[in-house]
Write a protein that binds this DNA or RNA. Sequence first.
DNA 1: CGGCCACTTGAAAACCTTCAACCTATGTGG
DNA 2: CCACATAGGTTGAAGGTTTTCAAGTGGCCG
Lengths: 229, 229
Amino acid sequence: MYDARVTRSRSLDPLGNDCVGCPGARRCWSDDAGATDGSADVPFPARRGSQLEDGVTLFLEGERASAVYMVMSGCLMLRQSNIDGTERVVGFRLPGELVGMDSWIRGEHSYSARAAGMVGICRLHLPPAGSGGASRSLLDRLLLKCALQMERNAPPWPGLPAIERVATFIEDFAARARVKGSASSPIKLPMTRADIGSYLGLAEETVVRALTQLRKRRLLRVRARRNPR
Amino acid sequence: MYDARVTRSRSLDPLGNDCVGCPGARRCWSDDAGATDGSADVPFPARRGSQLEDGVTLFLEGERASAVYMVMSGCLMLRQSNIDGTERVVGFRLPGELVGMDSWIRGEHSYSARAAGMVGICRLHLPPAGSGGASRSLLDRLLLKCALQMERNAPPWPGLPAIERVATFIEDFAARARVKGSASSPIKLPMTRADIGSYLGLAEETVVRALTQLRKRRLLRVRARRNPR
DNA sequence: CGGCCACTTGAAAACCTTCAACCTATGTGG
DNA sequence: CCACATAGGTTGAAGGTTTTCAAGTGGCCG
């Protein structure tokens, strides 16, 4: 159904094999509280700047995990199978966020990752987890990222009413999607209402009604999607 | 309300300042998939084997985070304030699990931790996050733990009906509470139904009704708590 | 003993899901 | 180019689940 072809990016150095000199390195590695020296020269083995077309699968659930990815632009959607065979959305990954840390440890992906819209990613080549092959500086930064992302991996508290769960989700997504420091600007939701519902544990219709409410109360401005899918 | 006094443990070496020679070190550090050499000699600076009485607060939300903790026995309950001032349970930590990794990074606890029943903990003295002061071996193991815990930090998918959410919770909690490799034995739930409800986003009464159902269907055996609180 | 706390149960109300229909934009084939 | 199919989105009504409110039980402790 989906073409898994990965097209080469138009970035300056598509073959770059580490983060040194990458114009985005600062964004990837230096945006966190408690960051150390602020240096963006991170000599991590990496394949830089691949572009995934909308709908392309980065990896599938159950696949052997050979790398950790960092999102550079766009949005990755993570899905996991339920016991009954249905699928649910378990997370979204936005620029500057890591994907597949847990898979790296376990050796196998526990969820699949698909591009929601156009997505730019870097593939980090890490030595096998626990092998002791990773450099101190690498470990230091990975741990930082990892610990920080622990907070954002959970959907809004399920005890909230639907409208607040949707509102919280939008707020969180927007905060993560916006470039750090930039003023508030309209953001794009690259997933369907059904995807949001799946993530929040709500029916698609409930998400729609919640968004309608938020719009009516002037808490949100919703524009039609220009290019669905 | 609660006495924050920490009593000294009866362990062999209550003043031990690292994990070398600790009989529990293997349990703490070598129980994970992909573990490297299997060595339990982990020279981490640590204060070993403090015991917390039931209800004692280990740290409060908003406090400056000065250490990371590892649970050795019992159960820690993590709570976080909502915007409206109410509190919800955001997690439970069981033996072998880390508490406060994210706090360590951010420098401040984003949730409070309280002993649910008698709890044994070790306090790991880590250099400030990102300072580069941590050893490679320490980082390696912390990252392993951290990445593994990312999976267990989320409550069961909110889209499930209440009874399945409760069942999933009990199952997960039991699996984590049981000593690795031991046969299934009755486990103790050291929290109230209200706490479970708060964690799952369900009303206390709904949890009670779900447990009643599971008991009626012979999927669960529930015994009255011997010592409430 | 009396009070408190955890737990339990019942009934009504609120909320969310489900089902069904419809709308609009996009893309495809004749 | 138009007809049609498809996918995402939206709305209404019915039905089911969960919450809320109210009341009551039993154990523990001062």
